[in-house]
Design a protein around this nucleic acid. Structure first.
Lengths: 224, 224
DNA sequence: TGTCAATATATTGTATACAGATTAACCGAT
DNA sequence: ATCGGTTAATCTGTATACAATATATTGACA
């Protein structure tokens, strides 16, 4: 009944969603007052939200200049994917050790549904199922902190996908990679699960990197 | 000349150091007013510090109850070391690829000094050199984000060492493990560097875990 | 003495106030 | 028009104010 959300949380969610959806662009400066007026609240909760977003790497405070939406460099992408690949590989390996039958069944069902979405070119379903699949794998891997780190890393770069239609064409190839990963996990083959994860994510990284180099960076005035 | 530190930073550093040194104990509740009065400042900067420390996993906010110093469970230790081992192994591997001669020389000098400190039973020097060594390896590994994650993970559990003298006796064995790691890095043997790191950290984890189970948890009323 | 309501106290979330510093706007002199 | 400098507008950091809620205290009554 009551939406017991604090104004601090509201500000946090508002700013975060703006940044992730490019409503606030990389390199753009924002002020607490601007957000506060926008949301019809005071500066106090906004400033607390700023601190959190700074810790998440989405905002950066430049002394004497103000709060800036963090803009990524190619080195950042390298760092982010290096960690992401390592952690996701770890979690894939651990998921392969999971014996919880309910989770294993759910995983099986999800990959089947993804196959259908891919065959039917249903991008929206695909995106949702993809989220479910990964959160399932994370649950099976049973390391909540690692999952949080990975989600945070994704928040840092995912907006790059919005600028151009990176999804186009990927779904078809991606389903095969996902199927191979799920198969490896369900068969309990840790090493294979790890390997599939690494290979998949390296492909994502490489595609992203070359797209950035060729199509985004040449036109990006305010960073990415 | 000017200590251009903001009161928010002062509060952050104060609370963090208190938590890390067990001045604020795990499970203890603290209020913004209490900190503010302690430092003779207002609540506003303290609240911002709270938000940051929450994101770092040192404080946790319990709705309707207040801010509590996070207290670890054995599962937390498991999670933390799983990630720590994974990331440090990655960095060791990358450090082994480093060709920067200045850094390599510094590494060599540091491990030599550590050997001397170990032989001379100079614990203070050892602790400092150990810090230098790891920060050197992190520099060689060239992934600043990963280093930050590792440091944050360490902040989460290191206070456990304070309660009991976990260092006792470890220095002698530890120097050998460190020497083997440095040798692997300098020889450029990625796989070995990774292996030494994992084995070393697994030992640390196991010692810590058994100490906790046997000597700390039985007497810990307010968590660890 | 134990229970419960009534009241006081503390604590949080949020708004507002205000000083210091920075940036932008203006304006007259060259 | 350009420069230097003065003033005005912003923005940040911090303090304080205040309402709502939760916790603790008190005390009257069974």
């Amino acid at each position: 009944m009551s939406d017991k959300i604090t104004l601090q949380e509201e500000a946090y969610l508002f700013i975060k969603s703006k940044i992730l959806n490019l409503g606030f662009k990389p390199g753009e400066y924002i002020t607490d007052l601007q957000i506060a007026e926008n949301l019809n609240i005071s500066r106090t909760p906004v400033r607390e939200a700023f601190r959190i977003l700074e810790r998440e790497g989405l905002l950066i405070y430049e002394p004497k200049r103000g709060w800036k939406v963090y803009s990524l460099t190619l080195d950042d992408i390298k760092e982010i994917f290096e960690i992401k690949i390592n952690l996701e590989a770890l979690l894939a390996k651990k998921a392969a050790q999971c014996t919880d039958n309910a989770l294993r069944t759910e995983l099986k069902q999800t990959i089947t549904a993804m196959r259908e979405a891919a065959d039917g070119d249903d991008v929206d379903s695909w995106v949702n199922l993809d989220k479910s699949l990964h959160s399932l794998i994370f649950t099976m891997a049973d390391n909540h902190r690692a999952m949080t780190y990975i989600e945070n890393l994704n928040d840092q770069w995912n907006r790059l996908r919005i600028g151009f239609s990176a999804r186009t064409g990927r779904m078809g190839r991606s389903i095969i990679e996902h199927e191979k990963l799920v198969e490896a996990i369900l068969s309990g083959d840790e090493e294979l699960a790890e390997k599939e994860t690494v290979e998949h994510l390296e492909k994502v990284r490489d595609e992203l990197t070359s797209l950035l180099i060729n199509m985004v960076l040449p036109y990006a005035r305010d960073g990415i």
